[in-house]
């Protein structure tokens, strides 16, 4: 059986910024419908890796392909949800979503219908005509998700999307991402520094080491469906995996100088 290329594949991917190695020979593959979490402390290169996938930067060496084709620049097949939302302040929620539709050349009448459907999907049907400054942080992130879905990406890239919202809203949004993943089968690369978030949303967690060391460890998450069930957070296997990742990150990822300092 000749295997089709993985949806997204990185082989020995390296990236340097000035003289500093930010990513060192990172390899991974993402299959269709999968949710992959990139987990690590700040400075580990997880956002850099996301920016490479998005095409905002090009890799120094190594290979990065989407369905076998090298990534050469930004494109709607890899639309990004940003930490701050990066909404267009001058456009309403609806117009933000329709921006993505018009970039795809969707006709005007159809845009209205599609934006109605997408805003309803993220629970914003009632506030479609509000501007970003009239919305809470959680609502803005929902618009960001709806806007990305309007681009109909092959992979949705999420860069610490819920880091700036309160805990309860964050958990609700994580559950909604999983529902959307189940409904659309759109694969997701989810960057986070929060272990619990990574375990809850991802099918697989890649732990990146601090200081550009590349992938330190990989964990497969095996939790019962539906994955958006909030009670999953209380299951023993969830807690066990969380602890295991925590210990891995605590032991293995700290630069030598800092761990000596902590021990003193």
């Amino acid at each position: 059986m000749s295997a089709a290329p993985p949806l997204l594949e990185a082989v020995d991917l390296s990236f340097r910024y000035d003289a500093e190695t930010v990513l060192d020979r990172v390899s991974f593959a993402l299959s269709r419908g999968e949710v992959l979490a990139l987990l690590g402390p700040s400075g580990c290169g997880k956002t850099t890796l996301l920016n490479l996938i998005a095409g905002f930067n090009l890799p120094g060496s190594g290979r990065l392909t989407l369905e076998g084709a090298p990534i050469a620049g930004p494109g709607s097949d890899r639309a990004v949800v940003f930490q701050g939302g990066a909404l267009f302040d001058w456009l309403t929620a609806r117009a933000n979503v329709e921006f993505a539709l018009s970039c795809r050349g969707v006709a005007k009448a159809e845009r209205r219908r599609a934006s109605d459907r997408l805003l309803a999907l993220v629970g914003l049907a009632d506030v479609a005509d509000r501007f970003p400054y009239e919305m809470s942080g959680g609502m803005r992130q929902r618009v960001g998700v709806a806007r990305v879905l309007a681009a109909e990406p092959r992979v949705m890239l999420m860069d610490e999307p819920f880091a700036a919202v309160d805990v309860q809203t964050r958990e609700t949004l994580q559950e909604e991402v999983l529902r959307i993943n189940a409904a659309t089968r759109c694969a997701i690369v989810f960057v986070t520094h929060d272990i619990e978030e990574a375990v809850f949303v991802a099918d697989r967690v890649l732990v990146l080491s601090r200081g550009g060391g590349g992938v330190a460890a990989e964990f497969r998450v095996d939790l019962p469906a539906p994955r958006w069930n909030a009670l999953n957070r209380l299951r023993p296997e969830f807690l066990r995996l969380r602890e295991e990742i925590y210990l891995t990150m605590k032991d293995g990822l700290r630069p030598a100088a800092e761990s000596r300092h902590a021990a003193a």
């Binding site: 998005a54 990004v80 940003f82 990066a86 795809r104 890239l157």
Partner: peptide, 22 residues
């Protein structure tokens, strides 16, 4: 903000569209 330009480009906007609309 660079994020807004990148958002536009990753949503499929051309450089020209990103200029006029963002």
């Amino acid at each position: 903000p660079q994020d807004k330009i990148r958002a536009a480009r990753s949503l499929g906007a051309s450089r020209w569209q990103a200029f006029w609309r963002v």
